[in-house]
């Protein structure tokens, strides 16, 4: 059976299915993280005292992680651009780099968590730490999810390029949208948790 508009855009909406689908999914993600951000603001305003993130957390590491994630965003978009100019080898390098940078991000994050745990700092310590671990943990899960998807398109999933190049390019565009969103969330998490 054939589902229309999986490859080419529907003329009146100008969209192919997966593109609309992923944007809708991202809209729901906005509401998910929005609820947590909102809770953060609410709890912070209500608290008699609130620590500054920079007193407890490791800013240099987090800054490094910001750089890593932003870099992975540009490699992701370059991976898509490479497919657009039909350079598959280059695509492979860029998507590989994206997955690799995701790993680097997680490793740095693991160091951060590890240092906290070994210093006896747990989520149950304070509301600030509760929200810090919940938000970064959830974000970390999103990174893992993105890496699985990108890893698939780097490995076995990339075979589709040889049979249905346009459809494959669409898939990378859609995966990219998700990955940039994960980056975008971090761009807000970083100042809110670490710098304020």
């Amino acid at each position: 059976m054939h589902i229309p508009y999986t490859i080419h855009a529907r003329p009146d909406t100008g969209l192919f299915n997966a593109k609309l689908g992923v944007w809708l999914f991202l809209a729901s993600e906005v509401m998910l993280f929005g609820a947590l951000f909102s809770s953060y603001v609410l709890l912070r305003i209500g608290a008699p005292s609130w620590p500054h993130g920079f007193e407890i957390l490791n800013i240099p590491l987090a800054t490094l992680n910001t750089v890593v994630l932003i870099t992975s965003s540009i490699t992701m978009v370059m991976a898509w651009a490479s497919l657009k100019i039909h350079d598959f080898a280059r695509y492979k390098r860029y998507i590989g780099a994206t997955v690799g940078l995701g790993f680097v991000f997680l490793i740095i994050k693991a160091f951060e968590y590890g240092a906290k745990f070994s210093a006896g700092i747990y989520p149950s310590e304070s509301t600030f730490l509760a929200i810090y671990f919940t938000l970064t943990g959830l974000h970390g899960l999103h990174v893992v999810g993105g890496m699985i998807v990108n890893g698939y398109f780097w490995g076995p999933g990339s075979r589709m390029w040889h049979t249905e190049p346009e459809r494959f390019t669409n898939r990378i565009e859609v995966a990219g949208l998700y990955w940039h969103f994960v980056d975008l969330v971090w761009i807000f998490l970083f100042p809110v948790l670490y710098l304020l």
């Binding site: 906005v30 509401m31 929005g34 609820a35 951000f37 909102s38 809770s39 609410l42």
Partner: peptide, 12 residues
């Protein structure tokens, strides 16, 4: 989504 996000952020 932006409108409902704003509603959500109005909680505090």
């Amino acid at each position: 989504t932006g409108i409902f996000f704003a509603a959500l952020m109005s909680l505090p």
